[in-house]
């Protein structure tokens, strides 16, 4: 997998940034507009998948190594649990308690107020991290499997 033609490479190196930014936008505005952590995470992962298709797997691995992405994956999940746990120890509240809720009932889901939905944007960020990293890992792992097999298959044919 050495990548595609120069046209695809050039276009995708421009487009990848836009896709990545769009993913971040979807994550951050998940509490106001349709979307959220999962959808945003998928878009972020897809920007890396585009890179993988255009430039080949090795190029992407240089940018975002497997260990790093699996750590990011775990950090995302841990962040989510941590947010839930903070709610638990915040005053006499409970698990998943929306602890940034002072303004919550007064002006819920107002534009230009990021914390208007309490912990939901924070949760979205955590989920976006988790989904982005894990989906990237899934596609990466599948491509590794296929590639291994193709090498073995051609070796078998040669023999």
């Amino acid at each position: 997998m050495k990548g595609m033609t120069i046209i695809v490479k050039t276009i995708s190196s421009w487009v990848k940034l836009l896709i990545f930014l769009f993913g971040i936008y979807i994550v951050l505005f998940g509490h106001l507009t349709p979307g959220g952590g999962f959808a945003g995470g998928v878009i972020i992962a897809s920007s890396y998948v585009l890179l993988m298709l255009a430039f080949g797997r090795e190029f992407v691995e240089k940018n975002l190594s497997l260990t790093a992405s699996s750590r990011l994956d775990c950090v995302g999940a841990l962040m989510f649990v941590a947010i839930a746990l903070v709610g638990m120890f915040y005053g006499a509240a409970s698990f998943f308690w929306n602890f940034i809720h002072q303004q919550y009932l007064a002006d819920r889901a107002t534009e230009f107020k990021l914390v208007s939905a309490g912990i939901i944007p924070l949760c979205n960020i955590a989920i976006g991290l988790k989904v982005g990293a894990s989906l990237f890992l899934v596609i990466f792992a599948l491509s590794v499997f296929c590639n291994d097999f193709r090498c073995k298959g051609s070796a078998r044919e040669l023999m």
Partner: peptide
């Protein structure tokens, strides 16, 4: 994802 990866490994 898990099913597909198991399929690929089994095919291997």
């Amino acid at each position: 994802a898990l099913l597909i990866s198991i399929c690929i490994r089994t095919y291997e």
